[in-house]
Structures are given as C-alpha cells and as structure tokens.
Write a protein that binds this DNA or RNA. Structure first.
Lengths: 202, 202
DNA sequence: CAAAAAAATTAATCTAGTTTAAGAAATAAC
DNA sequence: GTTATTTCTTAAACTAGATTAATTTTTTTG
C-alpha cells in the first residue's frame, strides 16, 4: 500500500508554522527546511496508517479529522489506547524510534488529513534544526503528563466519573466517535457505558 | 526546608556522564558545563523532595535508593503514581515546566542519593547544550511509551497478572518496598494483593 | 429506499476486586 | 530487649463493572 504524499499546501503549511511557533520560534531558513521535509496526505475513513507487525516509519500530525491507535488483544478484542484529533501527533513512538515491528494499528475514524514525517527525515531535521527537537521534547513532555494523569484517573475515579469528565472535556469529540470506541478507550464495556448514559445525566 | 546541594563527586560525575553517553555524545566543553549545573544531594528515608502545593523547581535523577511520587486523594488516601529507582528522572513535569503548584509529593522510600537540576539552569542548559535537550527528548519519549504501556496493561490484563508481571520484571525492587505501596501503584487494595500472594505463586 | 450490517440498549446473572473489621507479624524506637 | 508503631493477613459481606444473550435503533450499501 503506497502512500500518496504531497507537498504541504500554502494554507496547511502556514497553519502548521503557526502551531510550531506556539512552542519554538523559527527563522526563514528553518521554515523553508520544514516545507521540504514534511509531507501531506489524506486518509480515508477506516484506512490504516499503520498495521500490526509493520515497522512504524512515520509520525503523523492530525490536521483535520480523527485517528485512533488500537491493538487486538489475545482474546480478539480491539483495545483503543489513544485518539488523535486536530493538532495531535500520532505514532507508535516505540516502533518509530527503534524501527521494530509494532503491535498497534493506527486508523482513521473519519475522513482525515495529516502531515507526515518519515523517521530518517526527522532524524536529519533534529540535527539541522535543533528547535524541532526542542519542539518534540515539549510535545512529549505534554504527552507524558497527559498519560500519567490518565493513569491517576483510572486509579482514583470511577468509570462513570471518568466518562462524565471526558464528555465535559471533549463534548464535540464525543459526538464524532462511536460509543463503543469511547468505551474501549475508557476501559469499560459498551454495555456498561450504555448503562451509565441511561442514568439521567445531570 | 533548605536543600543541601553539593558538587558532584568525581565518581558520581563519571557514572552520570556514562549514563548520558548512552544517549548523546558530549564533548569536553559540554561535559564541563554539566559539572557546573548539576548538583548532588542525599535524601533521608521519608524525606520529601516535593510537597503538595509547592512549585516543583527541580528535576531529580536517582543515583541510589528509591523515590515515589504520590498524592492524597479527596478521600484521604495515598495514591502512588510512580516509583523511581537508579537512573530514573523524577519530577512533576507539569509543575516543573509551567512553574505551577503541584498536587504531588515526591518522597524517598529509602535513604537515597540524587542528582539535581533546577528549572532555570536546565532551561539555560537546553540553549547552551542542545544535546541535553535531545537527551530529554529521548527520555521523555521512553517515559511516554512506558506510561502508555501501563495504561494498556491496566485495560487488558487482570490485577493479579499485573502484579505477577511486575514481580517478574522487577524482582529485587519488590523486596525493597512495602507491599501496600506496590498495591497502591498497581491500583488495588493491600488486602487484595495479600489475597493474590496467598494463592501459591507458581 | 429496502436490505444488510453496524451500533446501541436492556436485563439477568456472575465475578474480580472493595470494604470493614480484627488479629498476627514484622520493624522501629526507646 | 520490651513497647509502640507499622505492615501484612484472613475472612465475611458487598458492589462496580463484566458477561451473555436477545432486541432495537442507526448507519451503510447496493
């Protein structure tokens, strides 16, 4: 399955630079280099950007739409570990960094648009533009904090509360994804989520 | 509570450089700069390196001993989110980065030794020695992968299996900490952990 | 737009893990 | 080394959430 990679369109390039500039300040040369190494592609609903067993060669920045990371458990169930919406990076960082086979799938939940960077290009870019490495240091720090917080929530609040928190935090996102996917992400069964929702939500 | 910070002793400096060199290669000037900005301190058992409500101004690298990160839940219970043993960095990255009050405690479980860097020093160092920012990009990437894996395990395997996995992965560490702390980290009650252990462990 | 497929609901039964309470063992402190 | 404190264990009653299975609703597709 060959990926159709294109140069960033002017508006996507511009809004990507805007995003980067929230974390690092880039000069003209650096900006030009960025245009050269990041590519753009569209992803159809249900299309996979990564399949179990593949080495994850790309890091994906969601411009539009929504992706999910999941795996198939040994009991044959899909377990979703992450959702990615606008302005989130999505990859299997373990497989990407070490170029080892991934156990995950990365799939578009809806028609999506992503900015793509290949592993080797990113490695080069880190050397040429250290600010990009700084940018990812900051992003990964945020990712880590978010993951830690998620673990804390799992251990300290009930599934019902976690669901209600999620709805409050991402109300529009909840509308966009099937409920059974949210249940999987929250680590509960669709049946139990349905039960929770049936209790008149205050 | 004033911290007693010292210069790194030659052997600790040397083994710290060894550690760093597993991720980045530093030249003589950079190594010298590192000696200047990282400090050393000992921590007594049960001593706190961070207390709830404080801004976390330091990042700690465990040279020897063992630290834990925990918070007090609104039901008054201690919930441990992280353990830190030899060669782990321990901080509240959220509080550290944004210089906002932390909700966590960082405490020595046993007599420990840590390498310390202050927030502003680290910011300067990132500029002067970008390889250190690269180093933390890699460390944070590993931290994020580990946290994601932990979430996956919580969602896909039973508490009993998680306990057995932990014992298999860190057999000597399990000897060093009280069981109720391990139970907290695993998100189960000490009573249930005791029950699990009572079932003849294969 | 009709048929098929996918997603959501409901309800009964079941279980992994909690809660409460008390006692036993191990560590620490004087 | 005896006392006090901390940690660990056992057991009975309980509950949040899983499982199973059947039905309804919604979405997709030809």
């Amino acid at each position: 399955m060959k990926q159709t990679l294109n140069t960033l369109t002017p508006d996507i390039y511009s809004s990507f630079l805007d995003h980067l500039s929230r974390f690092v300040s880039l000069n003209a040369v650096e900006k030009e280099r960025i245009l050269e190494v990041f590519a753009f592609r569209k992803v159809k609903k249900k299309e996979n950007l990564l399949t179990e067993g593949q080495v994850c060669s790309y890091n994906y920045f969601v411009v539009k739409g929504c992706l999910r990371v999941y795996l198939i458990t040994n009991t044959g169930l899909e377990q979703i570990t992450q959702f990615g919406i606008e302005n989130w990076w999505m990859t299997d960082f373990d497989s990407f960094e070490n170029q080892t086979p991934s156990q995950f799938f990365i799939q578009a939940i809806e028609e999506s648009e992503v900015i793509v960077i290949e592993k080797n290009s990113l490695e080069s870019l880190y050397i040429e533009v250290p600010k990009i490495e700084r940018y990812f240091r900051i992003i990964l720090q945020k990712n880590f904090v978010a993951a830690q917080r998620r673990i804390l929530w799992i251990h300290t609040i009930s599934s019902e509360q976690r669901y209600r928190n999620f709805v409050e935090l991402f109300p529009s996102f909840v509308q966009r994804i099937p409920q059974y996917m949210l249940a999987s992400y929250l680590g509960i069964t669709p049946e139990f989520l349905s039960k929770i929702r049936a209790k008149k939500n205050p």
